[in-house]
């Protein structure tokens, strides 16, 4: 209780959020199942469904990155939509205006957003508190008008159309893009797993749990947090580049504050601090508004808002936690 008085407040994660199960059962089996489904699906799904599935993977990469800030560091970012947008535009501008081959645009997007993340995180993260949320909120609001202003480069309000990467190895264009995105997603997961066990990863956990104690042990909060935030922004930027390859079109209105809020909702709904959370969250934030849209243009917002509140109050461990709990409940009943 003194911890609260000392002022580090964060979303509950894992055990604290009511997650009482040690682990997901049958780790390997489920992983193998997911992997084989991921390989088979592109050959069975109609093109539009495949496009949606690719988008889920793109969002997954962004959410993985965002979870590094929200789930693992206990801070809020409302700017990941903007980093996503900067990544998307970096790729689109390089391809459409400068004729750079598309594979090279991903490292460029990564570099640009890493730098931007550092620049936005540095001033806010030197201080404790919600400054990060406010700065990133402002960044998200400023990006669309800025993109419109730089019309010579970005095509202004009309946006930019980008030719799709050509399919190789006998695959269709959209299948090829799907597998590219799938590979990057797998690499992103591997990177995040590596980080969780590494020294910086453990430092983040220590800072989240006991900031004061971690500081006295010589863990420099600002430096670690800023690095984590920059990596996280980079994930969003990479996802943005993938988005450009997938969608073939970027415009300022695709990367508004609404996208940032959607991403935050995704990471909270999916379940913070888990590896399954980003996938589930990406599914949720892409599927739910699409379904709600059928009823009324305002419905997606109402549903998303309610869902976000519901998760915060009823199921703080998110979908990942719910799923795990349900499954263990079933197992136990059978035993």
């Amino acid at each position: 209780m003194n911890a609260v008085a000392a002022g580090h407040r964060r979303l509950p994660v894992g055990h604290e959020a009511g997650d009482r199960r040690p682990d997901w059962p049958w780790r390997r089996t489920s992983l193998a199942l997911v992997a084989s489904a991921a390989v088979v699906l592109p050959f069975t799904l109609p093109p539009y469904r495949l496009f949606q599935l690719t988008l889920v993977l793109v969002y997954t990469v962004a959410l993985l990155g965002l979870d590094l800030v929200v789930g693992r560091s206990g801070r809020l970012s409302l700017g990941h939509g903007a980093f996503f947008g900067v990544g998307a535009y970096t790729s689109a501008v390089l391809i459409a205006q400068f004729g750079v081959p598309y594979p090279l645009t991903m490292p460029a997007a990564a570099l640009a957003t890493f730098g931007l993340g550092w620049a936005a995180g540095r001033p806010a993260l030197r201080l404790r508190g919600l400054y990060l949320a406010m700065v990133t909120f402002a960044v998200a609001v400023v990006l669309p008008p800025l993109l419109k202003r730089l019309a010579g480069l970005t095509g202004g309000a009309m946006g930019l159309t980008v030719p799709a990467p050509e399919g190789l190895l006998g695959l269709d264009d959209d299948q090829w893009v799907y597998f590219l995105v799938l590979m990057v997603t797998a690499a992103a997961f591997a990177g995040m797993r590596g980080l969780a066990g590494s020294r910086p990863g453990r430092a983040l956990t220590a800072l989240r749990e006991h900031p004061a104690a971690a500081e006295t042990l010589g863990i420099r909060a600002a430096t670690h947090m800023t690095a984590a935030f920059a990596w996280s922004a980079m994930y969003a930027g990479v996802a943005g580049a993938l988005y450009t390859w997938t969608a073939g079109f970027v415009s300022p209105d695709s990367f508004t504050l609404a996208l940032s809020i959607t991403l935050l909702a995704g990471v909270v709904i999916g379940g913070l601090g888990t590896l399954a959370g980003p996938v589930l969250g990406a599914f949720a934030v892409l599927a739910v508004p699409a379904v709600a849209q059928e009823f009324d243009p305002a419905a997606p917002g109402i549903v998303s808002g309610l869902l976000l509140l519901l998760i915060v109050y009823v199921a703080p461990a998110g979908l990942a936690g719910l799923l795990r709990r349900t499954l263990w409940g079933l197992l136990r009943r059978r035993a």
Binding site: V4, R9, R10, L11, P12, V13, E16, A17, G74, R75, L76, L78, L130, A133, I261, L264, A265, V268, A298, A299, P300, G301, I302, S304, G305, L306, L307, L308, L309, V312, Y313, P316
Partner: peptide, 19 residues
Amino acid sequence: PGPISPVVATIGLYVLVNA
């Protein structure tokens, strides 16, 4: 136990009221 959640709740409210 985890109080950036009030802030997330206000963001949920933001989305809801706006819609």
